[in-house]
C-alpha cells in the first residue's frame, strides 16, 4: 500500500518535530541538573552531583530517549518507490541492495 507523498510529508514533519522535542528535553535536563545542583556538596563516585547527573546520567538518558523516539514516533517508509529509474535499472539497484544486506548485516 503506497501512501501519497502528502501523507508521507505529514509523517516526516511529525518525526522532525518529535526529534526537536527530544533535543529540547535533553537541553532542559542538561541545564537544570548542571546549574540546579551546582552548589550541592554531595559527591557520587567521587564526582560532584551536578556533573554526575548532567553528564554521566544525561548520556544514557539521551540514548533511552532516542530508542523511544525511534520505536514509538518513527515509521518505516519504502524508499525504493522514489527511485525513478527505468525498469531494468531498478532491477539492478534492488539486487545491489540485496547483496549489500548479505554482506554487511
Amino acid at each position: 500500500m503506497k501512501k501519497s507523498l502528502k501523507e508521507i510529508n505529514k509523517q516526516l514533519k511529525k518525526e522532525a518535530l518529535l526529534t526537536v522535542l527530544l533535543y529540547v528535553l535533553f537541553f532542559i535536563w542538561w541545564y537544570a541538573t548542571a546549574y540546579g545542583f551546582a552548589d550541592s556538596p554531595i559527591r557520587v563516585l567521587g564526582l560532584p552531583l551536578w556533573f554526575f547527573l548532567s553528564c554521566i546520567v544525561g548520556w544514557p538518558l539521551c540514548c533511552i530517549g532516542t530508542v523511544i523516539l525511534v520505536k514509538k514516533g518513527f515509521k518505516h517508509i519504502d524508499l525504493s518507490q522514489f527511485e525513478e529509474d527505468e525498469p531494468d535499472e531498478t532491477a539492478t539497484k534492488q539486487t545491489r541492495n540485496g547483496g549489500e544486506e548479505a554482506n554487511h548485516e
Binding site: 526529534t19 527530544l22 533535543y23 535533553f26 542538561w30 548532567s54 553528564c55 544525561g58 548520556w59 539521551c62 532516542t66 523516539l69 525511534v70
Partner: peptide, 8 residues
Amino acid sequence: MIQVPTAF
C-alpha cells in the same frame, strides 16, 4: 556533552 545528540 552538548554534542551527544548529534546523531539522532
